[in-house]
Design a protein around this nucleic acid. Structure first.
Lengths: 256, 256
DNA sequence: GCAAAAGTGTTGTTTTTACACCCATGT
DNA sequence: ACATGGGTGTAAAAACAACACTTTTGC
């Protein structure tokens, strides 16, 4: 095995050495970002070097790492975001799911020779995690394997590697289904936010419009919000109340 | 490694030989059974030989087997049931989850010596599947590892191995949450059934009572049922209609 | 005072709940 | 005929949706 790209922080050695990782298992993160300006939902993808294929930010699991920890680490590596709630939504384990030889091409392009029975070419079961964050607050940090990190609209995805398109579809379905009950846990808004902020978020994620007053009634009915002081932002209108999520909620959402 | 129990169909050799299995990955089945007579929900458990610990029917995944296939096979081995809908609900991957040395004690009791770094003692991530079947129609077939298969009431579980108690809790929550949308897929009732049959099922699973007429309205509102002919069972009352699930429904519930 | 955005109220509709009544069936 | 269990109807209550009106803010 020869490596011609030793300057990167995260060395390829580390990525390829089987001893550190649990074989056959990976995690993939479906990171949804809401784009307030364009009012559309985006998703964070990586483009493989020299390949016309995009993929989810994902990675292998260290031996001494919980699954969710691994997902958190992967997310941190690409965004430097910490303490982000990641929600496990499904595990993908079809034998055929990594059938196309993306890894092989990828390594070959990097000038790395790896024997055909290397663990990286073996079967992988991947555990999908999803999260929802404010797209405008995120910086991206591509690694040596990936040319670029970029955000895509969920309805305009590029050509995806492996079964990642399906993973995204399942993740999106999960997000929409559980928005009401899990929104507390997502670190998507600043500590304090207005009802309008929250409504925008809902409209972007669910891709539908709501009436201002009915939305408020519905949300307050969930009993997760706490009304705070008013926000004077200098605009020529009545100042909206600020809200925060009441602390009681975030229960067992973080267990493995 | 010496084996003193070679007469069983499924040889220990096969179970222990790493070549056939995907390392680090297992499946566990939470098989719920509704007990019409006692109107309570049961669950199928196995008792380890010579150990005072019960566990879920689970097993390893063959190299050439999808995850769900593995779960189906495990279920078949214990019940000889086929074509049962199994629903993946969560993957458990905490490092500590198999910390107690059940496998070790188990093998030692069997007189099998396995080196400490054998793959069976390594970290395992388990994918949980659940199903719901008619308890009275099921026969059980314990394997050589397990003294007995038995049904337990979900609210009276025995001492469980590993993190199986938590797996059951998560599985039960999933079952209850998704009963409405997934009941179509469960092979829990005969082809044709009465509204009362279905109501019993709901009451057992959700552990609450419903009013006859309102229940009917709610269920018919789901638009999954098709009314058939009446059932004359000889009892001295109005004959109830039979229903069946309309075929349209069972969509992508079986993908990996 | 005015426009803009937020808060609150009100009315009609739909859905859910509780109760009542009628209908078929075998003895 | 009658007891038993099943089907259907209806009124009250609750939840939801659509609309209207009032309040606050900076210019």
């Amino acid at each position: 095995m020869k490596i011609d790209d030793s300057k990167n922080k995260q060395s390829l050695n580390e990525l390829i050495d089987t001893k550190n990782f649990v074989a056959h298992i990976s995690v993939d993160c479906v990171i949804f970002g809401f784009d307030k300006e364009n009012k559309k939902l985006k998703i964070l993808l990586l483009k493989y070097h020299d390949l016309d294929l995009w993929s989810l930010p994902g990675g292998f699991v260290f031996n001494d790492e919980d699954l969710r920890q691994a997902a958190s680490r992967v997310l941190y590596e690409r965004t430097h975001l910490q303490d982000i709630f990641l929600d496990q939504f499904h595990t993908f384990g079809k034998i055929t799911r990594t059938e196309n030889n993306v890894h092989q091409i990828l390594l070959r392009n990097k000038g790395i020779e790896v024997s055909k029975d290397h663990w990286i070419f073996q079967r992988f079961v991947t555990v999908g995690y999803c999260s929802l964050i404010d797209y405008s607050l995120v910086q991206t940090f591509p690694d040596s394997f990936n040319e670029t990190c970029d955000w895509f609209y969920v309805d305009q995805l590029p050509k995806m590697a492996f079964d990642h398109e399906r993973i995204i579809a399942v993740g999106l379905k999960h997000l929409r289904k559980n928005l009401d009950t899990q929104i507390v846990a997502y670190n998507l808004l600043p500590e304090k936010f207005t009802m309008n902020d929250l409504q925008c978020l809902y409209e972007i994620v669910l891709n539908e419009k709501f009436r201002r007053n009915n939305f408020q009634r519905k949300i307050l009915g969930l009993n997760t919000l706490q009304r705070l002081e008013k926000l004077y932002d200098g605009s020529a209108n009545k100042a909206p109340y600020l809200y925060k999520f009441s602390d009681i909620q975030k229960e067992d959402l973080t267990e493995e």
